[in-house]
């Protein structure tokens, strides 16, 4: 039904263009309209294929059109078409700078003390040196949280993201106990709830939770950024390039400084997934903390 709605909206825009009687209802519609016209069939783009050849493809085949609903009035149940988001976290580079957490808090209008990302001190054995492990939501392909939700308030999207519908969540917190990674947080009090009207004005954040009291939320992989082919704020904020974010379909991830092939990176650096034996199939990979860039210092900047 949602798809029907957005389709009818698009055809409405097209009709508007043809008759020339468009009354621009807002910048968002103008943007989408201009995108529509710029992408005529027949335009070709030269691209470098994964095996090193130059190929020409129709421009309509790359960067599939972003549904308007993802940017202006974000529909939490709609994934970005054609994408399979994936994250790689290089543990060798993390020194617990904490920038990912503060950027995440800023992006999601959370107070400084709250963040969807946790930076955990881990030690695999007594003799191994400890290391820092940032944990966002793993957006598992076999998500235990989604399985147990009694009302379908958390779900798997086509782009791999595990989404939450804060208008449906009943606050039973079964997903929180089902998640083996403690990725989910709860809005225990009314303090952080954001006025929805005010929130809607901030268009680029339309996809993020308004912290509805009595409901669960978590890292959402910043779907608005992802839809616009931008990197999530935690990835951009990290001074050490710990986070790589990208698209499994394209087999590309980037940490902002370098863009690499996902499969090659995981192969070369022995990428693994945390607690693989649980069978949850996380979409977040880790690169082992070997050949560290920083010595481990047990400080926790910016935390309480």
């Amino acid at each position: 039904m949602d798809e029907e709605q957005s389709n009818s909206r698009r055809s409405f825009i097209k009709t508007g263009l043809i008759t020339g009687a468009i009354a621009a209802g807002g910048l968002g519609i103008m943007e989408v309209a201009s995108q529509d016209t710029s992408k005529k069939k027949g335009d070709t783009v030269k691209l470098l294929s994964p095996d090193g050849k130059i190929v020409e493809v129709d421009s309509s085949e790359i960067n599939p059109q972003i549904p308007d609903s993802l940017i202006s009035t974000h529909n939490v149940r709609e994934g970005v078409p054609g994408k399979k988001f994936v994250m790689v976290i290089d543990l060798a580079k993390c020194k617990n700078a904490g920038r990912c957490k503060s950027a995440c808090s800023k992006m999601h209008y959370l107070p400084e003390t709250r963040s969807y990302i946790k930076i955990n001190k881990m030690q695999d054995s007594d003799k191994a040196s400890p290391y820092w492990m940032p944990t966002p939501c793993f957006h598992c392909d076999n998500p235990p949280c989604v399985k147990v939700c009694p009302v379908g308030a958390t779900f798997k999207l086509t782009d791999g993201i595990v989404g939450i519908d804060n208008d449906r969540c009943i606050g039973c917190r079964f997903c929180m106990v089902a998640c083996p990674y403690s990725a989910r947080v709860f809005n225990w009090d009314t303090e952080y709830q954001i006025n929805v009207v005010r929130f809607k004005e901030i268009k680029e954040h339309a996809a993020c939770s308004t912290h509805v009291t009595g409901t669960v939320e978590k890292c959402d992989f910043c779907p608005t950024k992802a839809a616009k082919n931008e990197l999530p704020d935690c990835v951009q904020a990290c001074p050490n390039g710990v986070f790589y974010f990208g698209d499994e379909n394209e087999d590309v991830v980037s940490n902002g400084d370098e863009t690499v092939r996902l499969s090659q990176l995981l192969k070369d650096k022995s990428g693994y997934r945390f607690l693989e034996d649980l069978g949850t199939k996380p979409r977040v990979y880790y690169l082992p903390p070997v050949d560290r860039q920083f010595p481990f210092k047990d400080v926790e900047p910016g935390t309480t």
């Binding site: 009694p150 009302v151 379908g152 308030a153 449906r168 969540c169 009943i170 606050g171 039973c172 917190r173 709860f186 809005n187 009291t213 009595g214 409901t215 669960v216």
Partner: peptide
């Protein structure tokens, strides 16, 4: 429940 006002969701969206 965090949202007892949404108890009916169990029957509508169960």
């Amino acid at each position: 429940m965090g949202r007892p006002d949404r108890f009916w969701h169990l029957f509508v969206y169960g």
